[in-house]
Nucleic acid binder design. Structure first.
Lengths: 124, 124
DNA sequence: TACAATATCGTACAATTGTACAACCTGTCA
DNA sequence: TGACAGGTTGTACAATTGTACGATATTGTA
């Protein structure tokens, strides 16, 4: 089992990749349609991003009619792990606590969320 | 008060900027010295990054002897806010909960941390 | 079967990013 | 005062990123 290191996913690529995860599998069109209204990217751009993700090894595709249907070929867990760690390292020197603090202080998470997390941790 | 939008901070720049925050103010040398052992970047590279951060408006400098002493000219809060939001948007569609979950599940935060967060939220 | 609609592919291109060399200044100490 | 250690500045350059046009291929349909 050759475990070669996958190339990094760029920010815009991440955005697109997330949509594919969300949709489970998707054509260029479908990804375009599920873009948040705020973030309008041209069809051609989405296409390029999907192509690059496939070349980098994060997606594969199957043909359906004349369209390509892209689907993940790497567990999202893996990508998330890398991204989060990287982000944490750069912005907080690897310490997750300030990040949590930020989220708490800015009302991004509430008491309920905390309660759920508590359970999650206890269960482990 | 003209509130112009600051240019984005690139990942490597973020890394350096964080060190300046941590040191409060620092010369190129000092930043180099405080780089984590893992991440060895050449002096010249650190220098360029600091220069770019200053040009982008995140740092200023004063002269001490022959060296430049860089210090923040924008509150770290501001940068963190942008970075976190951006990160959250791209990787999780803006929802912080999965991120917290990830952190909890991977032992990045423990029950104690949760306790502290709880207080933080209640206090608000 | 020819056409309109829809997709993909190849290609492009400017901006940004990461990385760094070489040349040039400037205190400091002998 | 002259040399040197240590700084800074200018510049470079390949790779990556974000964005997208134009040409070509395919399919369902009239």
């Amino acid at each position: 089992m050759t475990k070669r290191r996958l190339p990094a996913v760029s920010p815009s690529e991440t955005e697109i990749l997330r949509l594919v995860w969300q949709l489970d599998k998707a054509t260029v069109q479908e990804v375009c349609d599920s873009l948040p209204a705020k973030r309008k990217i041209a069809y051609a751009t989405v296409q390029t991003l999907l192509r690059r993700l496939e070349k980098k090894g994060y997606l594969k595709h199957r043909i359906r009619g004349k369209a390509h249907v892209f689907f993940p070929s790497v567990k999202s867990e893996k990508v998330i792990k890398r991204s989060v760690n990287d982000f944490l390292d750069r912005l907080f020197g690897g310490d997750p606590v300030p990040l949590m603090q930020y989220l708490a202080e800015h009302g991004k998470i509430d008491a309920d969320d905390i309660e759920k997390l508590k359970k999650l941790i206890d269960k482990k």
